[in-house]
Structures are given as structure tokens and as C-alpha cells.
Design a protein around this nucleic acid. Sequence first.
DNA 1: GTTGCCAAGTTTTTT
DNA 2: ACTTGGCAAC
Length: 784
Amino acid sequence: MPQEPTELVRDLTEPQRRAVLHVDGPLLVLAAAGSGKTRVITRRVARLVALGIPGWSILALTFTNKAAGEMRDRVNALLGEGSRASRGLTLTTFHALGARLLRKYAPLGAVPGLKGDFTIYDASDQQALVKKVLEGLQMSAGNWSPRSVLSAISAAKNDLLDAAAYARSAGGYYEQQIARVFESYERALRAAGAVDFDDLLVLTARMLRTDARVRAEVQARWRYLLIDEYQDTNRAQFEIARLIAGEGAQSGGPALPAELEPAGPNICVVGDPDQAIYGWRGADIENILDFEKHYPGAEVIALGENFRSTAPILGAADSLIRRNRRRKHKDLFTSRPGGDPVEIVVTQDEHHEARVVCDWLRSHSLAETAGGLAWRDMAVFYRTNALSRVIEEQLRSGGIPYVIARGTAFYEREEVRNALAYLRVIANQADDISLLRIINTPARGIGKASLDRVIEAATARGLPVFSLLREPGTVKDLSARACSAVRAFVALIDGLTGHGAFMGADVPASLAELVERAIRDSGLEALYRQQAGASGAASDEDRLANLSELVSSAAEFEQKYDPASDPALDGAGASTPPLLAMLRAYLESVALVADADTVDPERGSVTLMTLHAAKGLEFRAVAMIGLEEGLLPHARSLENEHAMEEERRLCFVGITRAMRRLLITHAKYRSARGFAERTMPSRFLDELPPEHCTRRDLARDGFIDDGPEAAPAPSAGRGRDSGPPGPFPPGSLVRHPQFGVGKVLAVSRGPGARARVEFREAGVKTLVLEYAGLKQVGEARGRA
DNA sequence: GTTGCCAAGTTTTTT
DNA sequence: ACTTGGCAAC
């Protein structure tokens, strides 16, 4: 039997309890950081189920797959082992929900021009497609950077404008040109049987709006809707939520007694305006601020008490976020006294910063101190992914286990992308972008010239490239050699699919086998094996290892895959061969991984991630690096007050992830694009309360602050464990007896230390400090 | 057709 | 620094 509802609220605060006990009608939970939000939503879902509401009528939308999985685990734990009641709960992300609804309803014609077997294009696929489109329109990729074109298209989509609507609203020449690309891009996507990430939301919203039958079906099924991180929803997501929530249990009949009057849609949203950090991708904070306007009669519950962080950490967070002007003030409070101050440390450069962070992590580890922390309790946050590298190197050399939360990193590797491209062609032969990626990888005699002829023929006839490959004889001027190479390629694909039947003695029977065969039969394996053998380079060994890891991931997916819950196999899709359906589901799951999905607390490692990926997580000890003007706040936000406030919220999110200890660092010099530059401390550092922070300056380049004549400052003591630093910090000017004046690019440390110096006349040289006879000249201004 | 080298541009954050 | 695209040599 399900647990008594009273069990579910016993240990909660009053507002938490109210939120958990709410059943019907709209509910807004304003959950401050660390206020037990996850607890509240999982309890509420468990309670709905305990009340007898069937699991299949509950839809919960989270920001990442991982959050969805955790929620499922916690709900199951609350309802007791083996509870059947939670079965059928739909716990997923907006994007995965969109994919699922489109797979189910597109085959029924609910989305014009889209079939159910679509491929999901990621950013680099989109880029490749836009380049192709620009070429087709004779617009040079030089003047029209695919990047900016795509961001304009994405912004339009997030605003629910389709190509035609965008074209109508396009004002100037630039926008009109973008509109042309937009239209052509959409056509190319559909022709390739593909959707981009934005489409997963936009097409879903449009389908729900225009197709009354789909809308009715969805509304009839999901009677209870819950949305987490609502402050980060965009227009399309708002629309999807609104359309699924419907009007509530409207009777449509004669007036009912007040107590039976429908309470409105059963939509519960949870979020915190102070943690809105996705404005740049169209998220609209107004969605949460205006919730009561959109859903009249909504109950509003504020969770303010913080159960996560110590008072100094919370004090720092509060003092920072108060600086935002566009904000409804709310008090953050904790009843837990004590706690160590927030440590703010200035380091010499990013390498020094990395050492300080590693030392700090180690000093808190279980091995070092009684009552210390496990590695998995610690995390390092940074504003941009590029900052992770130096930290990684230091952690690796220091023997500290770590994982990087970058969900797509594995799937972005060249060899993995190639293997996936084969699978995508198998799953959808209209997918030109994937086809062009692998048709001559490894080289099989279909070179650029031949390919251009095939593409030309395909374009002329308005057909996918693959269909031309099936009759190479009809392609004008295609050499006999190329023809036979093309036939061999088609035979390769047909061999893997059993000519589309996915059946037969010579055809793979399982997904893992299909992936393995694709890698082997295509020659990818041989390609990397040959390279690995020839050069002996470790990276090519890695590539082979990554390919076999891909096979394992397919095998793992296969274990968990349940055809009964595959929306693509409903109704119109029922005749799809099971292996093909599984392959498509696998490719979809690969396309929709989030960075945070890779966070695995079981692995016993320090977690490295961007501040964005950190949202929703907590760690006992957190180090935040790179608190510098131009980094956090990011350079792209300096001019714009809204963007600046979002940066501040991002910093706030980082601080509030920390439960017990927080280290914030700023490097005095940091190299970007190969040049070390002097930095400025982040303005956010000035906004932290002195009474809750300790500040230490471990940088030691006194001669720069004090002029070229002054001696270097004395040793900084702590944090330098690998010998004396190079005496010339990156960025400084030096004189070499032979090469003259140059700018120091990088310095290595320890015995035999070298410096890379860019000389005005002689170019870049690497010099051993001991012998080079370099003399300090002064601080560089700009480039040498 | 294939391979390897050089030049240029390049970066925020993510589903 | 690091990738990507173009071009020349094989």
C-alpha cells in the first residue's frame, strides 16, 4: 500500500507542507536556492500518486535527464519498493517530450512536411546545413557567418516565428537576407528529414496549437503538469505548458456549486527568478513573474528558508544578488549558525590558480583531515569551458580523480561522430549532412569532384543525395571508377540494414552488433587502427577505445530500451522494424544528453563544470575560478544591464551550490589565445560582504606594480609546490642578448625551466631560462 | 584522388 | 592555443 500522505509532510516546514498538499488548480512555488525544492516536488508527486491519481496522468518536466531520473528514484523510494503506482509517470525534459510527441504524431500528419523518422541535428549539423544553404543561395559564408545566421534563426524560432512570419516582419536588407536563408534552411531540414533543437519545442508548440485532436489527446492524458526551473522556460516552452495544461476540468455545463467549480488547470511550476540564467537562449523570466496573470487564482508559495549553506555562504550570496535592480527582493535566511568564511584568493596566473585550487581540494579531502570530505563532495565551477583545461592538467598531475560534466563531449569526438553518422544514414537515408560526412570517410574513391556531380544531380532533381547513389549511372559525367565506388558504398549500407528489412542471416540482430558492424564494415576501425599502428600516437589508440565505448553505450541502451513505451511505434509507426526503431531511439537519446547528465556521484571524483551546468546541484565544497572582469561577468555582458544582471545571477547560482566551504579565485594574469594578459578582479568580488570573507593575495609580481626597478616580491609561501616560478610572468617584456626585446608568452617551472618568448624581430623562441640571459624590461602594453 | 601543410579566424553559457 | 579550410604536391 502507498504510504499515508501524512508521512510525506511530517518533517516539512509550513510552506513546504502547503506546497506538497496542494492538489488541484495552478500552483506557483517560488523556491529560493537551497530551500528544499526537490524535496517538495518529489513529495508532491508521491502524494498525488498516493491519493490514487494514476501515474500515467502526471507529467513532470525537468531541465535535464539526470534531474528527471533522480526524481523518479526519489518518488519510488517514497512510495516504497516495487510500487506499481509510480509506473507510467512521465518524467522528462521539454526537448525529450517534444521529440516524443513529434515521433508519435508526425506520422499521422500532424506536422506538415515532417515524418516520424526524423533525425535531430545538433549545432554542428546545423552549421553544416546552413553553409550548404548559403552556398545554394550564392551568399558567401564570409559575409554571412553561419554562426550569426543561425543565432538569428534560433532567436526567431524561440519567439515562435516561422520562416514566413519572420520574412513578413523583416525590416532591413540584413533581415530580409536572413529570411531567405531561414526559408531555405527550413526546407533543407525537412528535405533531410531532420529537425534542429529549437524545432523540438517550436514544432511541438505549433502542433499542439493547430491540431485539436492531438491537443485533446494530450490534455486528456496528462491531468497533472509539473515544471521545474520554470524561470528558464522560453516562449515555446510556455506555450507547450499552456496547451497541455488546458483550461482545467471545465465542465462546460450548467454552473456548479462553488466548491465544485474547477480550480483551473492543474499546473504546478517551481522556480526562482534569482536563478534565471538562460535569457540568452530565449528564456523569459516574465513567464514566472507573470504566472498569476496567466493562471488566475493560482496559489503562490514562497520557500525562503535555506537548508543547504552555512551562514557566511548565504550571506555572500544575499549580498551579491541584492545588487540586481530588476528583482523582487526576498530574504534568504538560515537558522544554522556558524560556518567558515568564504575564501577569496588572488593568484598569479591560471596555473598558479589551478595549484591553489588543487591544494585547497586536497586539504579538505578525507585522506588529509579527520572528518574531511570525499572527492565526490567537491566541485570546481567556471564561466567558460576553456577554463577547465588548466585545472584538469593540475588535477591529473596531482593524482586527484575528477570528471568533467560535459555531456556531449564524448559524442563530439571526430571518430564517434563518424560512427554516429553511419548510424544516422542507416536510420534516415535522406540525412544528407550525415551522408556527406562519411561517404568518403575512410577514403574510398568518392572524391570532391565526383561528389559535386552527385550533389548537383540531386539538387536538380530535388532528391536526397542517397537516392542518386542508388543509380549512379544517371549522374552526368560520373567516371566509371567513381560509379563503382558509389555502388560499393551503397552495398555497404544495404548490407548493414538487410536492404532496409533489418532482418536476415547476415544482418546484425542487436543494436550493439549493428554499431559494431557499422564501425568495422565501414572501415573506420581499420582507418584508426592503421593510424594507431603507424604513428604509435596515443590519441589514435584512444579513438579505437572510444569506438568500443560507443558499442558499449549502445549495448547499455539496448538493456534499458522498452519498445512498448517507444512513441514511434504507436499506431502509424507500428510497422517499423524493431531494430530500426531501437536505433532511432538510441540516436535520439544521444542527441539529447545534457552536460549535467554526466554528473555521477558514484564515481568518487571531483566534478568540474560550467556555472550553467551547476544549476540544481549542490556540493559540500565548491571552488569557483576566474572571477575576473570579462570572464565573470563575461565580456559579452559588460555593455548591457540585463545581461550583467544575468551574470550576477550566474555567480549567485555558483555560490549557492556550496554547502560548507567556498573558495573563489581570481588570477592576476590569464592567457587567452596564447597571450597572457593582465586581468581586473570581478566587480562581483566587491559585492561580497567583508564580514563573511577572507581575502589573500598569493600573487607575487611586485615589480610590475612597483615599476621595473623593484625586486620581485618575496615568496608567496602556500600554493607553490613545484619549484620556483619563472621570474618573468607571462605578458612581461624581456631583453635577450641576441634576439632583442620580446614578450613572454609562457613560462615553465622547476629545474630546466623554459620560457616561450615572442621577439619583435626573431619571432617566437623557446629558451631555457638558465642559459638565455633574459633581462626584465617592463610590463607589456598590448602585443609585442 | 589523396595527403599534408599553412594561414586565418576564433569562443560564452546549452537542450 | 587550436581548429578549420584552402591549396599544392604526390
